[in-house]
Amino acid sequence: MNTYSKDHILNLCKSHMKQYVLVETQQGEQLQGVIVDMDDENVYLVTPVIHQEQRNPYAYGYGYGSPYGYGYGYPPSVGLRRLILPLTAIAALSLLPWY
């Protein structure tokens, strides 16, 4: 794996500000998100999060056998989280298409 200078990664992140990117870290993790901010040390990403929560399907009158709805259980919850990555932890960055 190539190791780029901090200045190279900083310029790369600046040129991809507010765009949907794939970030690969020095440890080999891959993260998808939008670069929303940055400073001289860190990059701030907003990343999607999908949780498959195991909740009680009978709570609050929803789910199987309920007079208020059909089906069983709940759909997955979707959200966003803000992730702070040090510039020195980034090994590669590339653009991704919006879906």
Rank of each mutant, 00 (worst) to 15 (best):
M1L: 08
S5Y: 04
K6P: 05
D7L: 13
I9M: 15
I9H: 12
L10I: 01
N11S: 15
C13E: 02
C13M: 11
S15P: 04
H16R: 13
H16V: 00
K18N: 10
V21E: 08
V21S: 06
L22M: 11
E24L: 00
E24N: 07
Q26M: 15
Q26Y: 06
Q27N: 11
Q30T: 10
L31N: 00
V34P: 00
V36E: 05
V36P: 00
D39N: 15
E41H: 13
N42E: 14
Y44C: 05
Y44I: 04
Y44A: 00
V46C: 03
V46F: 01
T47D: 00
V49H: 12
I50L: 15
E53C: 08
Q54M: 09
Q54P: 02
G61R: 08
Y62E: 09
Y62F: 12
Y64S: 14
Y64M: 14
Y64W: 12
P67N: 09
G69D: 07
G71E: 09
Y72T: 11
Y72V: 09
G73H: 06
P75C: 02
P76Q: 02
L80H: 13
I84S: 11
A89P: 01
A91V: 08
L93K: 08
S94M: 14
L95F: 06
L96I: 07
Y99A: 02
